[in-house]
Design a protein around this nucleic acid. Sequence first.
DNA 1: AAGTATTTCAACCGCAAACCA
DNA 2: TTGGTTTGCGGTTGAAATACT
Length: 247
Amino acid sequence: MGRAPCCEKMGVKRGPWTPEEDQILINYINLYGHSNWRALPKHAGLLRCGKSCRLRWINYLRPDIKRGNFTPQEEQTIINLHEVLGNRWSAIAAKLPGRTDNEIKNIWHTHLKKRLNKDQNNNGGVTKDLNRTNETTHEDKESVIVDTTSTQQFRTLQISNNNNADAMMSYEDISAMVDESFWSDVISVDNKNSTEKTMEDWEGLLDRNSKIYSYNNSKLYNDDMEFWFEVFSSSRRIEEFSDVAEF
DNA sequence: AAGTATTTCAACCGCAAACCA
DNA sequence: TTGGTTTGCGGTTGAAATACT
């Protein structure tokens, strides 16, 4: 017997989200958090599947999302990390506060990959074969690292596509970066007092917001900025990526 | 101005990992 | 240990926007 679909295909809305749906989702998550995505749409009164709600929140509605174009520094960071990590977009996103894996994936496919291919053609093969790099799976990359460990060598890997000495990282740094636990911190704006809330609170809020269409999330935004600042300032290794956009 | 081609990016899909009873 | 459920990830799609003819 096959696995149950993630959501009911019938009676579930698809496609672009409306501002009203966004508001309902934001309000609900700020009251109750998102401990159960599957149950969330039902409780919030949204005709969406949990997966869709999660994606919308993570990629668009989260208060710490940074909107606007990528800076040259951010683009260079993506290029550098992609050489090390491959298509591990969520891992790359973890290094770029306010940017989502989906956004980074899009920017890579629409801009950066093309630009790198162009640069490569212009340099007549002097630079690294970036196409080969793109085809390399992260398993390939990790196997290289394991081999390096076995010989107790501390090779350095050049992760930049130019000869900038500042971009050289030791094996220790690389392996720390690809350690799964390193990436596993979860960003959450769950309301810790959510269990104290009641559905009456929620319904009341919905009612109020149907009249007043505004939302102030500055407190949450600031909290997340502090969170990210803490993460960055406490990680010695991240100094290697000091070109990441500052706040 | 109209039609066509190309680009962008939000959203969906399927799979695998993580979780839990 | 097992099997069902939920979450998270990366690949892909397709509608809308933009560029080009």
